[in-house]
Amino acid sequence: MSFSQHFPALQVVIPLVAAPLAVLVRRGALAFLVVTGAAWAAFAIALALWLVARDGATVSYAIGSWPPPWGIEYRVDRLSSFVLLIVAGMAAITLPYSRASIEREIPQELHNLFYAMFALCLTGLLGITITGDAFNIFVFLEISSLSTYVLIALGRDRRALVASYQYLVMGTIGATFIVIGIGLLYLMTGTLNLADMGRRLGEVRETRPVLAALAFLTVGISLKLRCSRCTCGCPTPTPMPHPP
């Protein structure tokens, strides 16, 4: 087992571990260093994965060594490796420049919590991209969206609170729609692994539950997009008075 085999897991786990560390160190500047380091490490791993998957090779990583339809699988193919590269790259590049605006926007004692939230948001986004399991997507979606709500609400403007509340309500409705869609697909195919589901969907294509699942997923993802498109990768918690 060489070290590079574990890159798919490390991709998500490094920012995930950085978040509690950032909370524990308590000093804003130290937390900044921890999270920035984690973001650059994630970027380096994404780069390595992209170099592997660029020629069409698919990296599959079975979490806990359970084979895919039973356990959870991480899958890095050409598309997802590219998205990983973009997400991690944006976080790594914007984070150093965000220091000044965060000093201005957020009270001193909340700095380490802000950076922890940023790391969690990054974890969620990377996890959504890399995972090959339908329900795992929902879990990571919730990590990234809960942290995004907090990032929005930390702004000084009081309207940021209301905006964040509205994002929370809309986002939760969207996430629940996504769960309904995943549930319908699961009831029709009996599996949660995306690749396996794709194979088995061929047999039940054009049935009513599958069409309804498609509709629920579309509505849910649209609601989520509406919520998150202004905040993902945005380093400052800009108070957004109304949904875009």
Partner: peptide, 9 residues
């Protein structure tokens, strides 16, 4: 978890 965060807001 969502409920707790919403109530804090």
């Amino acid at each position: 978890a969502t409920l707790a965060l919403g109530l804090a807001l």
